[in-house]
Design a protein around this nucleic acid. Structure first.
Lengths: 205, 205
DNA sequence: CGGTGTTATGAAACAGCGTTGCGGTACTGT
DNA sequence: ACAGTACCGCAACGCTGTTTCATAACACCG
């Protein structure tokens, strides 16, 4: 008994997330107010508190969605080609994800909204994305391309590098168009070269 | 004519900046409200609007202070030793600055407060810090240690890397104590090695 | 069919934020 | 002494996240 739901909860939840994602992508994090998001789908702020615990809950859902999208891009990267080429492809997939939705990237890896901090559980949920990178690195080490080093350490290095590059690029500090491409290539290739077991090309192009 | 200032402007400005810096360091960006900062030095919010244009002006001042502190640390790094060692020292100076005041680091390189975006002029003001890095890289290229590459591109690579490492470390993603040290070393050394003109040590320790 | 219980819902209240305008204060030039 | 004015802080406005509460709408029961 009790008053029946005039809207399906799952559907409303999806609509709210969609609206919030659109607002974040198009107008940035400042547009993400509970009133605004609720109004966008024709309901009131209470719905946000029913379906997500609070605003941080809404942000957490978007945060996890972002990592799901990143993981999807990673899944499209082959794992059976040249190990180092695959590794570079992961880097470029990361770059593409950041450029596709800069504000969401900020939500995932920056901290544009003060009152949201990913919990330990959220971070564990994310570990999977990082593991994809570790596996790709491990292949480079296993086949002798990379010097015998803890793949976790190398993956951490590369992860820091792509995050730094993405941050600089989204801030416009990497230059325009081709120059940004060039700098991504310079950095990623040098980073990989630095881990090679044997360097047969002393002078890069 | 006119009512005399009951407090010296420069002094009040300094006090406000100091209080804001203390609040940011100890309680994080959420504690940085105009009311709170003003109350901390025994004045009202109006002072903030007199001395800085608005809250963003206060944040901009702290932002510039942060870069001044970073520049000071860079100035302490020798420029007459082994070029690559000097370059690594710059990286560790950057790390030390980030760890000394994590919240201020976020303010400088992240975007913890939505309504503050550094202007073009601010970014130009900062270019000097980046130039220190470019010069150190140029020395490595000039003496033949690094392959002939645009020093700007290499400096961009290293800058992205240290920013990424600092971000990960401040988030606790680099592990505890020695492990974080180890990962900084692995990453910085591999990055430098990747730019070497000749690699004589094929397998790193 | 009417009453009742239960639940969904949105409007309104509350505290806090950045910001602005107004009125009072306290000194200086005449 | 008096007028003028630069300064200062209180209070208001519109916004935020969050909670509360009155209302609405159904299912069940007598």
């Amino acid at each position: 008994m009790g008053r029946p739901r005039t809207r399906d909860w799952d559907e409303l939840r999806r609509e709210l997330l969609e609206a919030a994602g659109r607002l974040l992508a198009q107008e940035g994090p400042q547009a993400l107010s509970t009133r605004r998001v609720a109004h966008e789908v024709g309901t009131s702020t209470t719905a946000v508190y029913n379906l997500f615990q609070d605003k941080a809950g809404l942000l957490r859902a978007m945060f996890l969605d972002g990592f799901a999208a990143l993981e999807e891009r990673f899944a499209d990267v082959p794992v059976d080609g040249d190990p180092e080429a695959d590794l570079l492809a992961l880097g470029y997939a990361y770059r593409a994800a950041a450029r596709a939705n800069p504000h969401r990237y900020d939500l995932m890896f920056g901290r544009p909204i003060a009152d949201f901090l990913p919990s330990e559980a959220d971070l564990a949920r994310i570990r999977g994305t990082f593991d994809t990178l570790v596996r790709a690195v491990a292949r480079c080490v296993a086949c002798g391309r990379f010097a015998p080093t803890d793949p976790d350490d190398i993956a951490t290095h590369l992860s820091a590098l792509v995050h730094g590059l993405a941050s600089l690029e989204l801030r416009g500090a990497l230059g325009e168009g081709e120059q940004a491409d060039h700098r991504w290539r310079i950095a990623l290739e040098a980073a990989c070269r630095g881990h090679r077991a044997v360097t047969w090309a002393a002078v890069p192009g």
